[in-house]
Design a binder for these strands. Structure first.
Length: 293
DNA sequence: GTCCAGGCTTTCC
DNA sequence: GGAAAGCCTGGA
């Protein structure tokens, strides 16, 4: 990687397979805002950054070389070789089209606690509503992390902070509906030390999933999302209504139950099935593939 | 053990 | 009214 730093911005020269729009809008993250100039302002790990493309370069503003090396290389999965991962799908013409459509998607490595709570909120919910609830949670229970371009930003609250919140207050202020108790319960488990989400990083996909699935509000789909988007287990294949429709329409040509579909897809796509899932999800959702009219 | 229907909040169409 | 990145419960 060819890095240069100027004032508070880091420039990565000639970085292939990095498209901020596709990375953030493919559904793996919720705390981003698209700006008028097409850049993305993002809150993660108690920091605010702005990410954009400048021709072949990636530009990260409002950061430092130290943060880039200690936080953002990991967050953006910059050590992974996306080109060679994509090449494992070379025999698959459907995947070629999905990859072309979503060129520059990367699987983020997000904070496990924030990702867990965010995906509990995602159950039977819409993306704009999920984003809104998470923003309200940060604004109400997180800490101010300063201003960027005249706007104040807030961190996602710690487990300790969320564990103390009153259930009905959380529901009323943050519009989380029936997910209120689940959010508080998981926060309490983490806050009191019964559940260590960070130590799970050392384990494999199936081990992590088996722990997550025991938590309130987390079933197989959400557990798969967390193993993929927080723990970067690229063999994870979350099956939601969208990917189910897409896979049945493009590949299986028949109704397959979700559990079986996850298993068959992991066999089909191999160790980087999660990456395939993201390309297909984005491609399928943006083009309404498999949706009956 | 597996599978499935119904209920759950809130918001938007 | 119906549906939305599902989960939970109870019953077959």
């Amino acid at each position: 990687m060819n890095i240069s730093i100027h004032n508070d911005q880091v420039r990565i020269k000639n970085l292939e397979n990095f498209n901020p729009e596709h990375i953030f809008e493919c559904g793996q993250a919720f705390r981003w805002e698209r700006q008028e100039d097409g850049s993305y302002t993002v809150v993660a790990f108690n920091r605010v950054i702005n990410v954009s493309l400048d021709k072949e370069d990636v530009v990260i503003k409002n950061t430092s070389l130290e943060d880039f090396e200690n936080v953002w290389i990991d967050y953006f999965d910059l050590k992974a070789d996306y080109k060679s991962m994509q090449e494992t799908f070379n025999e698959d013409p459907i995947m070629q089209e999905a990859i072309e459509y979503g060129k520059g998607i990367r699987i983020l490595k997000q904070d496990p606690f924030e990702t867990t709570i965010s995906f509990i909120i995602s159950a039977n919910n819409r993306i704009p509503q999920i984003k809104k609830s998470i923003e309200l949670i940060a604004r109400t229970y997180g800490d101010s992390i300063g201003f960027y371009e005249g706007k104040e930003y807030f961190s996602f609250p710690s487990p300790q902070a969320l564990a103390q919140v009153d259930v009905s207050e959380l529901r009323e202020i943050c519009r989380v509906g029936f997910r209120d108790q689940r959010i508080i319960d998981v926060s309490k488990m983490v806050a009191c030390g019964d559940l260590d989400l960070n130590i799970l990083k050392e384990r494999d996909r199936e081990d992590i999933k088996n722990v997550l699935i025991t938590l309130p509000g987390i079933g197989p789909k959400i557990a798969d999302c967390i193993t993929l988007f927080a723990y970067n287990k690229k063999d994870s294949f979350p099956v939601d209504v969208w990917i189910k429709r897409v896979m049945e329409f493009l590949y299986f040509k028949e109704d397959v139950n979700k559990n079986k579909l996850a298993m068959l897809s992991r066999e089909k796509f191999g160790p980087f099935a999660g990456l395939a899932q993201q390309y297909l999800f984005y491609y399928g959702r943006e083009n309404s593939i498999g949706v009956e009219k």
